[in-house]
């Protein structure tokens, strides 16, 4: 892999898809697009296409999982068989089970779980097309689906990754950059409370590089948060004209 170095960023300092190091991929978000789920959201981030749907709060089945003092959040991250180049087995893989947990833990701090004890919220994330950074896009979409379902939340959650490609710290890695690059740091943020709910790192970074990457990712999260808000409000544009 080391021979491939210095190919991901050209002489002008642009990346494979022509982005600047601190530039996000084009993002399109829609809220409330499924009528059967209690809340839903769809996100396109570059070539990523992800659907999030939620049910609840409702009574827990099986009953023994219910907690007497708070609701439980259950999350399933799943990649469609056609989401990647080679057909992916539809059975949940080790990676998908891990990501389900990671997404759940990124969303949990944002929800008032103690409001409705003995109930559950089920989050379903379906990756239709994957191109790197799906866990972040999934969190972004799932947070919107929760808000769309009317679940009381402390804050929205926006997520974005930063990483190291060649010798540059870059924002929002796509699949190739993630695979051949040197490091990947996904971060999820509750922007108003300024609290990080997810921080992972894959690869090797020096202390300064890490700090730079986290700050860049946080900046990306804030940009995504602005888009999230816009998408959520867009569903209710007709509400702007108001009854006195």
């Amino acid at each position: 892999m080391s021979q491939k170095n210095n190919k991901l960023i050209d002489k002008k300092g642009l990346r494979l898809d022509g982005r600047k190091p601190d530039e996000l991929r084009p993002i399109k978000i829609e809220v409330g697009i499924l009528s059967n789920a209690d809340g839903s959201a769809y996100i396109e981030q570059g070539k990523n296409k992800i659907l999030a749907a939620i049910y609840g709060p409702k009574e827990v089945h099986p009953k023994h999982l219910a907690l007497p003092d708070r609701m439980i959040l259950r999350c399933r991250y799943h990649m469609a068989p056609f989401s990647v180049q080679e057909r992916k087995s539809p059975a949940p893989s080790r990676r998908e089970i891990e990501l389900s947990k990671v997404i759940r833990e990124a969303l949990e701090p944002a929800i008032f779980l103690e409001y409705y004890p003995r109930t559950s919220i089920d989050v379903f994330v379906e990756v239709l097309q994957a191109d790197g950074g799906t866990r972040c896009a999934s969190i972004t979409a799932a947070a919107l689906a929760l808000a769309d379902a009317g679940i009381p939340m402390k804050d929205l959650v926006a997520a974005c990754a930063a990483g190291k490609v060649d010798d540059t710290i870059v924002l929002d890695l796509m699949d190739t950059e993630d695979k051949i690059g040197k490091a990947d740091v996904p971060v999820a943020l509750m922007p108003n409370l300024n609290a990080i709910t997810l921080l992972q790192m894959d690869g090797i970074l020096s202390l300064e590089e890490f700090e730079k990457a986290v700050n860049l990712a946080l900046e990306g999260c804030r940009k995504i948060y602005a888009m999230q808000k816009e998408a959520l409000k867009a569903k209710y544009v007709n509400v702007k004209e108001v009854e006195e």
Binding site: A110, A147, M153, K154, D155, L156, L193, Y236, V239, K240
Partner: peptide, 10 residues
């Protein structure tokens, strides 16, 4: 008054 807010808005 009557302005739209999203979760987390101050």
């Amino acid at each position: 008054r009557r302005q739209i807010v999203t979760p987390g808005d101050l």
